[in-house]
Structure formats: C-alpha cells, structure tokens
Design a protein around this nucleic acid. Structure first.
Lengths: 250, 250
DNA sequence: TAAATAGTGTCTGTAAGACAGTATAAA
DNA sequence: TTTATACTGTCTTACAGACACTATTTA
C-alpha cells in the first residue's frame, strides 16, 4: 500500500485479506533482430537453479511505481545494454503467462513483450553485459526453438514469433527490424527471414509499394543497380500478404 | 509462498525483498453477446467508491493457485451467473493493464479476457445475480462507449471490441456468438452488429461458405424460405473479409 | 560486354463487388 | 398471387501469381 490513510481504510473495507494474494509480476522480453537473412533472439543463459544452464528470455520484476511497458523498456536496457530511448526500436505487449507453477520458486505472473530492433541486415545490434550477472547473446530463433528453454519461455518465444509473423501480413511492422530508410530488397529479406520462405521480388514490390514512402535517395552498392530507399508508413495492408510460399514451382 | 522450504530458501537467496513488490493480479471480463442485431456487453454498476454508480467490467482477483484463464471462468460464473462449463462460450486473453494508478486504492495489474456468449439473436443470455453484491446487466456496446466508465474499463472494452472486430475478418470466431448450428443470415447479422455496418448477402455467402460445414438440416421459419443450418469450422479465412461498408452505392 | 541487382510490363486465372434472377415457403 | 426470405448465376473489374524483360551500375 504505502498510500494515503483514506485510500488505505477504503481498501481494507472493500477486500478480505485472502482476496489479494501476493503475486509477483514480471516482464519477459522476446527481443528479435535479423542478420544474414536469419531471425535472431536475444537470450540469456541461466546461471542458477532452476533450469541452470538453459536459455531463457531476458526479463525482471515490475517495480511498484512503473507499468509493465515501462518495466520492459528498463529491463531491455539493463539486461542487454540496449536503450530504447536512443534506438529505433518497437515494443508491444504480447500476452500474460500466469500458470501457478510456471516458476517453481514462487507465484509469478509475467507480462511478455515483443521487442523489434533495427539492424542493417549484416550485423546484429551489440549486446553489452548489464548490471545483471547473465548477459544476453543472439541466437537463431528457428534453431533455438528445437531445444527446450527455461520455464515456459519456449512457449512465449513461439507466441512472439507467431505474433510477428502474423502481424507482418497486414501491417508494415517488419520495417522496425530495419533502419529508418531501407530498400525494397531489405524489407523482402526480413519477410523471408521471419516467414522462413522465399517471396517473388516483383510481386512483393507491387504489393508493398503503396504502403511505403519513397525518400528519393538511393543506395550506392558495390555491385548491381542502386536501390531506392523508402520509409514505412504505419498502416494496414488490405488485403494482406500471403504467407504461404510462392515463386517458381518445384 | 507456502511452498516447500527448499524452494523458499532458494527464493530468498535469489531475490532481494524490494524486488518483488506485492501487486494484486485481477481479471477483467469483456463479455459480449448479440441480440436484435445489436452487440451487448455484460457490465456491473459500481456500488462503492471509487467510481460509485458508474459502469464497470465484471472481474475479480486471481486466486493463489489458479491461472488468469481459470480466474476468468470462475469470475464469469460468480458475477454473471453464467457457467462456461455448460454453455457454448468462447474465452480468450485480451491484454494486461498495468498503469500504477489505474486503481486509486492499490496497485492492481489486470489481465483482461474476452468472452463471447452464444445467443439465437433474439434474447440475450440470462444473467442472474451471483454471490457478489452488484450483478451484471446487458448494455448496448456502441452506446455505452459514449459515456465514461470506471477505472480504465472503457479502454479495455474498446480494445476487446476492436480485437473481436479484427479477428472476425480472418477467422470464424463470430460463430461463437451464435448457437452451435446457425444460418448464413444469422452469421451475417453478427458481422453487421459487431462491425456496425451492412454486408451484401450474396457475396457474404460466397465468401463464407468454404469455411462452414453444412449440417443438412434446415430452419422452419414462420415466413420465408427455410435456411440451411451450418456449423463453423475454426479456420483462417484468407484473404480476409473486408470490414468497410459495401452494398448499394448511396 | 558480362555480371549482378533493381525495377517494370504483361499475361492469365481467380475472386470480389454488384446485382439480377430463381427457389421455397406462408398467408 | 403476393410477400418474405434464402439462395444462385453472371457480368465486370481488380489484382495476385508467374515470369519475362528492361534499367542501372561495377568490373
């Protein structure tokens, strides 16, 4: 509590003590970025029991005076060295996980968040060790989902991946995995990395073009034709892109 | 805690007391049903402060040994007299709301759930007063959103409505607002009620037919031709329905 | 001019939107 | 036969999918 005595009295009148069990509230972060055409997740390796040595999502407790969204941004900075304030990043609430036995140590309800970090497709954003003992490192998502993870974090990661893959069908959210200005080919590469498929370039351009804004600038590639640079306009794509594989038959 | 002493010791070693503030976890329910072509929400009127006399979502605390989903089903029964066990109902997690000041009495994180109740379109499911003082009653959603609600419940209700409206574009979730067997016209009426629009019957049938299973049975209406009865196959509709108004120009 | 990548044009098939027409019942 | 509702057919247009072709750069 630690609020005014009026509120305190009102509270005590309204609820029986047994009604408000102490439940710890945490955030777990699904932090994603693309490099070399492969989707990666920032994961920590657990140093202590339970699930010692296994991979887990970064995360931590929600403080008394912050929202889950604020806690997510803070934990992202603490556990990965990344600061949402200075980065082109996208954060959104994913879902909450509340199975009573999801953490064997205590009752924990976790509000999972999805974080998309921009990268130019070559190198992943740098993760520096934070104040926490375990520091985060990048792992290829589709590979890491083959093995078990700590707690219910494999489920959360899968849900986060599915949220991203689904939302990319009908929004330009994928642009958050790229710098502010990007080429059509870069954007298509993000789609191919997340959907784990190939998309025909011509039709992708035709479908996506109305939802992007041309900057007028072009890239200066080492080889090949220069590509136009776009910025994303956050809007609905209707009808959505099709996720199923297309391209040459065979 | 109230767990084994091993777990307790491990817990005490792992966390500083200040790290796990006591935060109450609740569920808030967006309970929806359709009657007379209008979407209704089951709401309670607050009997005490704060927000005395205003409309609020039904809900309550998550118990120490239940998940948020279990709590949602239990609270639905307690506050509305409805029992998920004996009803064709659909429940899914919506989102969590964690602003530190969302409840002036104490720190409360709420995991909102969306509940869809079946009705034949004529009468709404009966709501009987439960053990709680305030009992729920049905209110037209689009009208009730004009006035303020208690806490952040207007936001939650709006989010729930938007979730339903969006999901109806690309799934057969709307069928959960109807009995197990329903006619194409009934299903179209649900779409029109939630989207607050008119849809052309012929094209709606053509688009929806592949996603429904014909039972072979027909209705016996007082007037007009008998209509075929369908059951829904839960599947993705791709490409999705268009929510924008169509039909005769003007 | 060859290689590599970016971008455009176009053909075809499918399906949405519009709406007229037919079918099946009760009064 | 009229009324009311359910359902089907069809015409037009839009656009996705497939894929060939052109454009722009470096070597």
């Amino acid at each position: 509590m630690s609020r005014g005595s009026d509120a305190e009295r009102e509270f005590l009148e309204a609820y029986e003590p047994r009604d408000y069990p102490s439940i710890a509230v945490t955030v777990d972060l699904v932090v994603l970025a693309v490099a070399q055409g492969v989707l990666h997740a920032a994961l920590v390796r657990r140093g202590g029991h339970p699930f010692k040595g296994m991979l887990a999502l970064p995360g931590g407790f929600v403080a008394p005076r912050e929202s889950a969204g604020d806690a997510a941004a803070r934990e992202l900075a603490e556990e990965t060295g990344l600061d949402l304030g200075g980065l082109p990043a996208h954060i959104e609430q994913l879902a909450s996980y509340s199975d009573p036995d999801r953490d064997p140590r205590m009752r924990v309800v976790s509000v999972a968040h999805l974080v998309l970090l921009a990268s130019d497709g070559g190198a992943l954003p740098g993760l520096s060790a934070g104040t926490d003992a375990a520091s985060a490192a990048w792992h290829p998502v589709h590979a890491v989902l083959e093995s078990p993870m700590a707690f219910d974090h494999a489920t959360i990661l899968r849900d986060g991946l599915e949220r991203l893959a689904g939302k990319m069908e009908y929004t330009t959210v994928a642009a958050h995995l790229l710098p502010a200005e990007f080429t059509m080919t870069q954007l298509r590469s993000v789609y191919e990395a997340v959907w784990d498929t190939q998309l025909p370039a011509g039709n992708f351009t035709r479908k996506m073009l109305p939802h992007l804004a041309a900057t007028g600038r072009k890239t200066q590639p080492a080889v090949g034709a220069p590509a136009a640079l776009f910025t994303a306009e956050q809007r609905h794509i209707h009808p959505p892109l099709s996720r199923r594989r297309t391209g040459p038959a065979g």
